[in-house]
Design a protein around this nucleic acid. Sequence first.
DNA 1: GTCTATAGGTGGATAGAC
DNA 2: GTCTATCCACCTATAGAC
Lengths: 220, 220
Amino acid sequence: MARRKKPDARTAATDYSAIATASAILDAAERLFARKGFDATRVKQIGVAAEVNPALIYYYFSDKRGLHQAVIDRFGRELVGRATAALAAAGSPEDVVRAVVATQSAMLSGHPDRARIIGRELIDHDAEHAAELISSLARNVFSRLRAAIAQAQADGTFSSEYDPSYAALSTISQVIYFHLARPIVQALLRERGTIGRDEETAFAAHAAGFALGALSGGPR
Amino acid sequence: MARRKKPDARTAATDYSAIATASAILDAAERLFARKGFDATRVKQIGVAAEVNPALIYYYFSDKRGLHQAVIDRFGRELVGRATAALAAAGSPEDVVRAVVATQSAMLSGHPDRARIIGRELIDHDAEHAAELISSLARNVFSRLRAAIAQAQADGTFSSEYDPSYAALSTISQVIYFHLARPIVQALLRERGTIGRDEETAFAAHAAGFALGALSGGPR
DNA sequence: GTCTATAGGTGGATAGAC
DNA sequence: GTCTATCCACCTATAGAC
């Protein structure tokens, strides 16, 4: 493999998918950062999990923070890409609501680590490391969901009594919460045993119906 | 002040409210653990913030983990206490839904640290340190909300097409998400400037209406 | 590009005086 | 109960051989 310039963590996201070692490091780091958090994760552990010499982490990513940023960037690119693709296909406002909820579920189902990455970024440091990701989501997903709701309100399909931004928040809160608050969800659904992917998709279907039910019928 | 036995962190929650020094430590620790997380918070910082000698942290709480557990326990006692009190006053199923949402909002409004404590416990270590809190909430709040929904479904007040557990999850997800996902909420409401308590209570009112609208009208 | 060895620094925890 | 001094484990990061 040709000699590579040491990537600068401060510049925009680099694509490491062609480099096997770097990809292995990113995979291992994603799992560990998600499960234990940034500070509790040891660089040595990442190396062991990736079956790579820990010193290579400093070769590919300038330091631990740089690796963390790279994990967020890679994840964010996939998330925004999928969301925009799903929304491009949506026609009616109802379709937009369903598409947003379905995409959330598709991204998170069977990937508990991803929910944790999002959760951590929301809580830690006011998500400063995911600022770009969030502004991108705001432009490409949230505002389009809100616009679809507002349009349907103008049509008379949805009740005009809701604030469109609030309604959008209520809509997206459901699936994220379901995946993020796993311990609470378990406590509520304990009679059903462990939560599998079928349960996750069933909830996503419910969530879309719940939001559309509220939007169509109006508040009480 | 009389000589005190060093409390054992492994036993059930101790009440430190009478001891000024211990209370100051708990207050400072709650703020710092919430904002920076357990691992990133330095014991020394807690001492400085509490204006107390850091060594006293080991005197009152056996170690850093014991302090963390005490923070969770104190917070949990207040949360469960308020929630059960609010539910005791509720009559009709509609009242129960409104009471749960209102209590969530009352607990979190103007207290961003509290939302973070909950969020961190959900994500870190699968909330193992808050196991008691969560099972208590499950018994006292979640199951009563679900029971109220099921009862209204039997009455014909709410649509029977919803799974009561799922409907309960959709209901409680809204306010928690609003407080937890502050960066995303900001992005969606950016034209309104900074989010204040008035905005927080306005959203809580919306959330109750949204849930009741969905429950009354049925899914789409 | 990969590996070893180690520097350099920090933070949790304790001993013991007062 | 409070404070000082300090130990020791451990972790990030780099230097440099291969």
